[in-house]
């Protein structure tokens, strides 16, 4: 008889202790689910709002980088020094040639570190101003 009473008390204690743990677990689970849903919702909203900016940034980043100007900068300087002396507008007294030389000189000054452009301008100067560089 005593044993039966003891068992029933033990069973009652066990059931009363188990309930709060179960509720706690369930509450934590629900909170976790809510948290995950919030993160997913934020991600979707963020993607929608920033997609244009992100795409623009990626377009700039994905452009191939051309380091040729940097690597030919000393050659460009030599060519620039030669061209700025030869194509100076003061060397041309004729009005039409003076205007062409003026335009070319501006282009040369703007592109003084761009070797490829300077080579194009050199050919243009040789053709339009009838000079040999």
């Amino acid at each position: 008889m005593d044993t039966i009473i003891t068992d029933s008390i033990a069973t009652a204690n066990m059931s009363s202790n188990a309930n709060p743990f179960n509720w706690l677990n369930i509450t934590l689970l629900i909170l976790n689910v809510i948290l995950v849903l919030i993160i997913i919702a934020q991600t979707m909203m963020h993607k929608a709002s920033r997609s244009k900016q992100y795409q623009a940034e990626q377009a700039i980043i994905n452009q191939p980088t051309d380091w040729s100007n940097t690597m030919q900068v000393f050659k460009a300087q030599e060519l620039y020094n030669k061209l700025k002396a030869v194509c100076h507008p003061d060397r041309f007294t004729d009005t039409e040639q003076n205007q062409i030389a003026n335009h070319l000189f501006q282009q040369i000054t703007e592109n003084k570190t761009n070797y490829n452009r300077l080579v194009e301008l050199q050919k243009e100067a040789e053709h339009k101003l009838n000079i040999k560089i």
């Binding site: 100007n69 940097t70 900068v73 000393f74 460009a76 300087q77 592109n111 003084k112 570190t113």
Partner: peptide, 8 residues
């Protein structure tokens, strides 16, 4: 000159 080549 090296800096200008990049910044241009």
């Amino acid at each position: 000159l090296i800096g200008e080549a990049i910044l241009n």
